[in-house]
Write a protein that binds this DNA or RNA. Structure first.
Length: 352
DNA sequence: CACTCGTGGCA
DNA sequence: TTGCCAAGAGT
């Protein structure tokens, strides 16, 4: 293919048609970094309001470095993949301490930061610093699999290397930022997963798949296996004007997020035995349990089927990872989607 | 490498 | 309703 003409067509199209996104109005490497973390596996339309609030709350790298983790997670609430937020802060603190607050501009150094993988490293280096480094995400693999007619399975980790080498070969050294963003923008607006808009494509003359009529058959991607289901009882245990909340462990699913205490329902623990079970574990009395809602929550790799209860708690011995909170304090705790569903039902009923 | 880790939109 | 997907990284 004609590399220089491809670069010109791609970058020319990008400069004319690119969307006006908030993170395209800054040159601050820190703010660009924030946007790249938020955009991981997350749609642009979802990220926009989060990004704006986040930059308002933590305008500089030092603001985020100094932030309380619970305040940070509250800002991230609803965005998902919460370890991104904690890794981001760890990375930011590392830059504050070891790099004088200046985001490093080499792949080796920036890749060593927590939460910064091969894609994010290349994205920040090219967009914030104009360095010709590859930034291969799902868009880029889809677009280039068609343009270069690459038939490797993009679901396999080692395939990414093929695309990184391809980008390294064809990337513009005059404008690496527009080149990388142009590939991604093309994937988002034109070269979409299903029914790509080839007639509107600025680089279709360079596209091998288009010439062969194979654009619908690429990329090759094996299917993911389906999710497992878990059953839980989620309990709003009340005492006076307070409700009992529980902080999840610092690693794993929804790490450090808060929830109404949950009990996994197995063959051993039937719903009817919940009061008894909890009374024993708290060495107090959990009574008047009443089911008020039932819902399903789908995560990326598993499903929760949740029965929501209200109950009364008396003389409970509360372990360290739990605490009684008022309605006002409840609003400050970072919670995940399923807990939000329960909370909404409670508020509608006037229980909190 | 295989698996974990959220959420909302849409065909 | 179900499955797939969207600017991936950590373990």
């Amino acid at each position: 293919m004609d590399k220089l003409q491809f670069q010109k067509d791609l970058i020319g199209w990008f400069s004319e048609e690119k969307r006006d996104l908030p993170w395209r109005r800054t040159a601050d490497p820190y703010q660009i970094w924030i946007s790249e973390i938020m955009l991981q596996q997350t749609r642009v339309d979802t990220v926009i309001p989060y990004y704006k609030r986040f930059i308002e709350k933590f305008p500089t790298l030092h603001d985020l470095a100094a932030a309380d983790e619970e305040v940070l997670l509250k800002q991230w609430e609803g965005l998902g993949y919460y370890s991104r937020a904690r890794n981001l802060q760890a990375g930011v603190r590392e830059v504050a301490e070891n790099y004088g607050g200046i985001v490093p501009n080499s792949r080796k150094e920036i890749s060593a930061l927590k939460g910064v993988g091969p894609y994010t490293a290349g994205a920040v280096l090219s967009i914030a610093y104009g360095i010709p480094e590859h930034a291969v995400d799902g868009n880029v693999m889809r677009v280039l699999s068609r343009i270069l007619l690459i038939e490797e399975d993009i679901a396999k980790p080692k395939t990414r290397k093929i695309f990184e080498e391809a980008v390294t070969e064809i990337i513009s050294h005059e404008d690496p930022s527009s080149f990388n963003q142009g590939l991604m923008e093309l994937g988002a607006l034109i070269c979409t997963p299903t029914s790509p808009k080839c007639l509107l494509c600025p680089v279709r003359e360079h596209c091998a798949a288009f010439h062969e009529g194979k654009q619908q058959d690429l990329p090759i991607k094996t299917k993911a296996k389906k999710t497992k289901a878990m059953q839980y009882a989620m309990l709003a245990i009340r005492s006076g004007e307070t409700v009992l909340m529980e902080k999840r462990p610092e690693s794993g699913l929804l790490a450090n997020m808060w929830q109404f205490p949950m009990v996994e329902l197995t063959e051993e623990i039937l719903p009817v035995e919940i009061e008894e079970q909890l009374s024993e574990s708290f060495r107090g009395t959990v009574s008047n349990a009443e089911k008020i809602t039932s819902f399903k929550h789908v995560f990326s790799h598993l499903t929760w089927n949740v029965d929501g209860y209200i109950a009364n708690g008396e003389n409970l011995i509360v372990p360290p990872h739990m605490k009684w909170v008022t309605a006002e304090e409840l609003e400050l705790l970072p919670i995940s989607g399923p807990v939000q569903k329960m909370k909404t039902v409670l508020k509608q009923r006037g229980d909190v």
